[in-house]
Amino acid sequence: MTFQEIKLYQTGTFVVGNRLLDPQQRSVQARTGRSNSLTSGHRACQGCGEALGARYVLDAAMRATDGRLVAVNSTGCLEVFSTPYPESSWQLPWLHSLFGNGPAVASGVAAALRASGRDDIRVIGQAGDGGTVDIGFGTLSGMFERNDDVLFVCYDNEGYMNTGVQRSGATPPGAATNTTKVLGHHPGNAFGQGKSVPLIAMAHEIPYVATATVAELRDLEHKVEKAMTFRGARYLHVFVPCPLGWGAASADTIKLARLAKETGIFPVFEAEGGQVTEVSRIRRQVPVEDYLRPQRRYAHLFGDNPRPDVVARIQAGADRNIARFGLLPEGDA
């Protein structure tokens, strides 16, 4: 954990608020005066992790910048469910252009603000995983490489959910989507080398890279606030479960995000200048099966023709993350 852990306060670090803490120490989301940058009335599915993640991130950024913030949004669920004419759910200056150009648009905004002497206004670019790891990847890499003063946030729900749940470059191996159906001998999505945009971002040696989940709000807010202390290109990759696309209960969104971290499937860490500086360690390690089972996209691994071999490969991937990032709890490492 990269921020002060909360001890001896009944509920600890993971809870949203805590009446026993000083108001200054409580999360942004615990405040009645939070921005609600993404407000009610949006058309996200029940239990949408992305809607939650976006509000978490933007509210924290609004606080960090004292409301001097502009958001650029790539095409995707987040854009569609928040801005169907005639209603917008955003409560900050917000621009949507295209699917693949969010980072470049954000660069343009940042350049304009700098050129006109208004660079006290900060810029956030945001997209889903499709707009980040796939179609927007070129513009993202360009933004990183130029070190433009943008915090780009990827809300990763591991697929093209807006178009009806197809595979993206962030879809994990073994997961079924509408373009990686379990037909014939195919066990869902293929096992590849993966595409970790956080690691790719680090390879650009930008000032700050972090991953987070919607299950660890304080960690997430801390990272947003920290990101805002840097100038230059910054990247935040937020894991946001998708009840619809994953075939999970709407009430399980945060639980699944928690399990993704506790299994080692999704490493939560921070990096500065290309070097990992902090990792969020696993608190109560569980096997990947605990994470996979509640999701219908993995149902074929446990059905009448179970695929323990595939589950074992997924476990091996989690174990590699654990070893690579040193995710085991303090004392177990």
Binding site: L95, A115, G142
Partner: peptide, 27 residues
Amino acid sequence: DCEYLLVESEFGAMSACIGASAAGVRS
């Protein structure tokens, strides 16, 4: 008082101009 962005593609170039223009500057 001008920022020259060395973008990675023409798609990026026009996109940056879109962002800059929306931010209220001549691009």
